[in-house]
Computed example of a mutant assay.
Amino acid sequence: MATPQELDILTKSFTGFGVDEKSITRILGKWKPEERESFRKGSPNFFKQDDRLFEKWNADHIALLKREFSRFKNAVVLWTMHPWERDARLAKDYLIKENRSCDVLIEIACTRSSEELLGARKAYHSLFDHSLEEDVASHIHSTNRNFFVALVSAYRYEGSKVNDEVAKSEAKILCNAIKNANTKNPVEEEEVVRILSTRSKAHLKAIYKHYKEMFSKTLDEDLEHGSSLKEAVMCLCTPQAYYSKVLNASLKSGADEKTKVALTRVVVTRGDSNMKEIKEEYHKEHGVSLSQKIEETTHGNYKDFLLSLIERGE
């Protein structure tokens, strides 16, 4: 007879982020037919009973389990790729989706160095026989098109020199564009696109600082929630805060699939980069370490692999 503890472990193993392969193997491998039947009858979230009292897997949960089993595989595959290929494939996957959100493309365009973004564009040529800029222009038909093409085309100055007076004047330009948002979407303003797609990150951080000093709010606070401009400003000026926000959303109970997949993407793509700063920001913002949150939320080999990536170098 299956014990209540085994039933509880198995139920948890089939839910959440990833599946606990070790517990599933250990428990199911020794269960007799009557114990498996008992589990089916006692797990209405997983099984439905038809009019002949036949318990069958819920089709929606089968689809969910396929995704959960694949999380570990997907994380390993992405981690072993060359970073340029990884970014190129992530961008392509974003572009062919119908219900896309702007986060993936903006992350690639705005948090990578100039050389990393150039490398991703070269990899995109090699993999898909198109330029990334060409496909962005072909697939995006919203008001964001010119902005996105400009972002992925960027090759920013990486030095520390900043003209402070120019940064102040451009903070005013951005403020005026935001104030006039009811008349014209700021993402369609040529000067806004020029500033955010060409200026160095050091220069943009100076703009960010002057904006707060002059207008008592940060630039991203004044931008519409969820807009491509807000996401780009956060990625360019406060990437650790941006990634902390994305990770927190992905780890929430009840997060949808589009939100959950960000967990793999962020941990894998930032594992060799600014993960230390992201973890510090996450702890500051949410009062719990990222490692602890992943430990509590995810399962099995997927959990172990994520933890190994975020704890590297500690």
Results as ranks from 00 to 15, higher is better:
V246L: 13
L223F: 05
K212T: 13
S250L: 02
F215W: 06
K184E: 15
E213L: 07
K217P: 01
C237I: 02
K205P: 03
L204S: 10
Y211H: 12
S227L: 02
I207Q: 06
H203G: 09
I195G: 09
E213M: 05
M234V: 00
N185Y: 08
E221K: 06
Q240L: 04
Y243S: 04
H210M: 04
A202D: 12
C237Y: 04
E188Y: 00
K205F: 03
N248K: 08
A181L: 04
S253M: 13
A202F: 07
E221P: 02
P239Y: 09
K212F: 12
L236Y: 06
C237V: 09
K217C: 12
M234P: 00
T198A: 06
S228V: 10
A181G: 06
C235Q: 02
E213W: 03
M214S: 15
E190K: 11
H225N: 09
C235I: 01
S250V: 03
L251W: 01
S253C: 09
F215P: 01
R194L: 11
A181M: 09
V193I: 15
Y211W: 06
K184N: 14
N180V: 00
V192G: 13
S228C: 14
E190H: 04
T198R: 13
A232R: 00
V187Y: 07
K179R: 15
T218F: 14
D222F: 02
N180F: 06
E224L: 07
G226K: 05
E221N: 03
E221C: 02
F215R: 05
D220L: 00
Y208K: 03
A249C: 02
G226Y: 03
L251Y: 06
E191A: 11
G226A: 10
K179H: 14
N185E: 15
S197Q: 07
K205M: 13
T238N: 12
V193C: 12
S216T: 10
K212D: 10
V233M: 04
H225A: 13
S216L: 11
A249K: 08
D256G: 12
S227D: 07
D256L: 06
A255D: 07
A255G: 13
S227K: 01
L247F: 03
A202R: 04
M214R: 05
N180C: 12
D220V: 00
L196P: 05
K230D: 04
S244C: 11
K201R: 14
Y208H: 15
E213D: 14
E224V: 07
A241N: 09
Y243P: 01
V193S: 05
L204H: 08
Y242Q: 07
F215Y: 15
H203W: 06
L229D: 06
N182F: 08
E231K: 12
R199Q: 15
S197G: 08
L204K: 03
S197M: 08
C237N: 10
N248V: 00
E190I: 02
